[in-house]
Computed example of a mutant assay.
Amino acid sequence: MATAFLSTANSFLPSPLSSSTSSSCSSSSSLAPASVYLNNQNVKRRPTLCKAFNESPPPSRALNKRGFSLCFISSLVLAAGNGCSNANAAILEADDDEELLEKVKRDRKKRLERQGVISSSDREKGYLQDLVYKLSKIGQAIDNNDLSAASTVLGGSTDTDWVKNANLAFSKLSSSPEEKTQVETFNSSLASLISSVTKNDVESSKVAFVVSASAFEKWTTLTGLVGQLKGL
C-alpha cells in the first residue's frame, strides 16, 4: 500500500525536479546538462508568457460604455442635486418675498383705514387739541412751582370733562396694543399728577407730569396724529 502511494505521488512530480534530484547525487560534471536544460526551459517559457500577455483581450467596449454611462449618470445626479438645492432656495426666497409683500399690503391697508378714521373724527381731534392746551398750561405752572394754578387746570380729579373727552378720543383712535398701553400709562400718571399737586409735592408733580406728557406724545406718534395737533 505504501509503495503504491509513493509511486503515484512520483507520477505528479515534474521532470525537472526528478532531474535535479538525480543530479544532486551525481558528480559535478553532470551539472552542465542540467543548466542547459533549465536555460532552454526559460527560453521556451518567455515567448509563451509574452504571447499570453500580448494575446490577453483588451477591456471590452461594453465595460467601457458601462463605466462611461455610470459616470455620466453620476454627473447628472450631482447636477440635479445642485439644481434641486438652488430650486429650493429660490422657492424659499420667493415665499419670503411674497410674505413680505403681504405684510406691506396689510400695513398699508391699516394705515389707510386709520387715516380714514382720523379724517372723520373731527370731534375727537378737538378733544385731543384741548388736552394739548391743558397739558401746556399745567406744565408751565409746575415749572414755575405754581401748583395752585396747576390744580385749577387739573380740576382736582380724573372725572373732569376734558379728561373724559380725552379718553373718548383715546378709545376711538387706539387700535394697537402699544397705543392702548400708552393710554393706560397716561391715565395712571395723570392720576399721580393730580394727587401730587393736591399734596403740594413739587418734585413728584414734575415727575408725574413728564411721564404723562411723554405717554401722550408717544400715543400721538403711534396713531399718526402728531402732525395734526398744534402745540406738540
Rank of each mutant, 00 (worst) to 15 (best):
A169F: 01
N167G: 01
N145D: 11
S192W: 04
A141G: 08
E203A: 15
E179W: 10
F170G: 02
E203P: 14
T185L: 15
T181Q: 12
S151M: 06
S136P: 06
K206R: 13
V132H: 08
I194K: 04
D161L: 12
G139Y: 06
N167T: 05
L154G: 08
T185S: 14
V153W: 00
V163S: 05
Y127F: 15
S192A: 12
T198H: 06
S188L: 04
S148E: 08
Y133M: 03
D201I: 02
T158A: 13
L147T: 10
A149S: 14
S136W: 03
Q129P: 05
F186T: 00
S174N: 02
Y127S: 01
W162N: 08
N187S: 09
W162E: 01
S174A: 05
E184W: 07
V183L: 06
N144Q: 10
T158G: 07
Y127I: 03
S196P: 04
G155K: 11
F170Q: 10
A150G: 08
L168E: 14
A166W: 00
L135S: 02
L193V: 03
S174H: 11
K137D: 01
S171H: 08
T158D: 13
K134A: 15
K125P: 01
P177A: 13
N167L: 05
N165M: 08
N187E: 03
I142N: 03
L190I: 10
V163P: 00
L173A: 11
S192Q: 14
L128E: 02
S175T: 14
S192M: 09
L190V: 05
E124T: 10
N144P: 07
S171Y: 07
S196M: 04
G155C: 02
T198P: 00
S192Y: 00
P177G: 09
K164H: 08
I142G: 06
K172I: 00
Y127V: 03
E203D: 15
S204L: 13
D130I: 12
D161I: 15
K134E: 00
T158V: 14
I142F: 07
N200R: 13
T181V: 11
W162V: 04
S151G: 01
L135W: 02
D161W: 14
A191Y: 08
S148Y: 01
I142C: 05
T158P: 00
S205E: 10
A149C: 00
S189D: 00
E178Y: 04
L190M: 15
T152A: 14
L173E: 05
G156V: 11
G126F: 08
E179T: 09
V153G: 02
T160Y: 05
I142S: 07
T198F: 01
P177K: 14
E124D: 12
S192G: 09
L135A: 05
N145G: 03
K137Q: 07
S195T: 14
G155W: 05
V153D: 03
S189R: 01
A169M: 04
G155P: 03
G155M: 05
S205H: 04
A150F: 00
F186Q: 05
V163M: 06
T160I: 09
A150E: 03
Y127D: 07
S192T: 02
K206S: 13
T152M: 12
G155Y: 04
Y133D: 13
N187F: 07
R123Y: 08
S189T: 05
T185A: 15
Q182Y: 03
G155A: 02
G156I: 04
I142L: 10
S195P: 00
T158S: 15
Q182C: 09
Q129R: 13
N145W: 09
